[in-house]
Amino acid sequence: MAVLDDVKLLLDIPESDADLDNKLNLIIKNAERQVLSHLPSGLDNVPNELEYIVCELSVTRFNRLGNEGMSSYSQEGESITYGDDIAPYLSAIQAWNNMQKNNTRGVVRFL
């Protein structure tokens, strides 16, 4: 699975380390569902062009483990504020959706 390998690379987890694979696969599956919820119905898989969003959402979610339900976290001068994880990617998803609506080249329709 390419996304799993990319997520492990971004998190500095060796590819050979399979201890977290089940947890990472669940996080990736949930990120895929989150992206798919913003795409036209009928799609079963996230398009390759949007796979980077799944990867980024997965890394963000993994880094939030242990802080579920918190809107912010502060300790010894470090402050983290959590928002809607997918919000920064909605414009890219919408642009992809618009491209699909405008892409009628190569389509055969029988009446």
Rank of each mutant, 00 (worst) to 15 (best):
M1V: 11
M1E: 09
M1W: 05
V3R: 10
V3G: 03
V3K: 10
D5N: 13
V7P: 00
V7R: 00
V7I: 09
K8T: 00
L10I: 00
L10Q: 05
D12L: 07
P14I: 04
E15Y: 05
E15C: 05
S16K: 04
S16M: 04
D17T: 00
D19Q: 09
D19S: 12
D19F: 03
L20V: 00
N22G: 07
K23Y: 01
N25S: 11
I27Y: 02
I28P: 00
A31D: 03
E32D: 12
L36S: 05
H38E: 11
H38I: 07
L39D: 07
P40E: 14
P40I: 07
S41Y: 06
G42L: 06
L43D: 02
D44I: 11
N45F: 11
E49Q: 15
E51F: 02
Y52C: 05
V54A: 02
V54C: 01
C55Q: 14
E56Q: 12
L57M: 01
F62A: 00
N63C: 11
G66T: 07
S71A: 13
Y73A: 14
Y73D: 09
S74G: 10
Q75L: 15
Q75Y: 14
G77M: 07
E78R: 13
S79I: 13
I80W: 05
I80P: 04
I80L: 11
Y82R: 09
G83A: 13
D85F: 10
D85S: 15
P88C: 10
Y89F: 15
L90K: 11
S91A: 11
I93C: 08
Q94N: 12
Q94M: 10
Q94C: 06
Q94H: 12
N98S: 11
M99S: 15
M99R: 15
K101W: 08
N102V: 06
N103E: 13
G106I: 05
G106C: 06
L111F: 14
